[in-house]
Simulated scan of single mutants.
Amino acid sequence: MSRRQQMMLQAMLRKAWWMWDDLGGFAVVAESVDASAISDVADVVALDRLVGTAVGEASVRTLEALCASGSIHGAAALLTLHHHRTVAARIAAAEHVLGFRHDPTGQVRLVAALALRRLRSGAHLIGDARNPMPSSHDQTFTR
């Protein structure tokens, strides 16, 4: 992965707002599912449990980097960690808490759970009558 690609992926992971077109199929979810329904999804509950652990936030950032980059080495580069063993250990610990492995099926589950968690965490849709104007701390989805 080039340095430019790494920088773009790092910026994406820190991004606090998203363009509506970036949501793809999740746009339907963003419009039709409320936070309480998302909170009942087993994989989101498992991510919440993971966040409650001592290394939870770092583990979630690692999982996001893994999904964004597609590999342990890529995730290590995004997180600016020299050793990919740290990333592999975080992923293994996260798999234990989540209850599923990061295989092709687990990748789909993980991406969905991470996206749902972001939506639940206060994402607002600009122009959506259900949501007031977002504060600067909210994740925002714009059309």
Rank of each mutant, 00 (worst) to 15 (best):
M12C: 14
L110C: 00
G24F: 01
R120W: 05
A30Q: 00
H73Q: 11
Q107S: 13
Q6Y: 00
V28I: 14
V87C: 06
T86F: 04
R4L: 15
A16T: 08
T105N: 06
A35R: 11
A94D: 03
L23M: 13
L110H: 00
A11G: 12
A65M: 03
A75G: 08
D138L: 01
A93Q: 03
R143F: 14
A46R: 09
R85I: 07
A68Q: 06
R109S: 05
M8Y: 10
G106A: 06
A75I: 05
L98S: 02
R90W: 08
L13F: 01
L125Y: 04
G122I: 04
R130I: 14
V51H: 02
P134K: 03
P134R: 05
S135Q: 10
E95S: 13
T142C: 15
R118E: 05
V87E: 04
P132L: 10
V44K: 00
D40A: 11
D138M: 01
D40C: 09
A123Q: 03
A123F: 06
R117F: 03
A94W: 03
A115H: 06
T140W: 12
D138Y: 03
V55C: 13
V29Q: 10
A46D: 00
F26L: 05
A89H: 15
D48A: 07
R90D: 02
G127P: 02
G24W: 13
D138H: 13
H96Q: 12
V87M: 05
M19C: 10
M12Q: 15
D40Y: 02
E57Y: 05
E95D: 09
L79Q: 02
H102S: 14
A92R: 15
S121M: 08
G122P: 02
N131P: 05
R85L: 06
L125T: 04
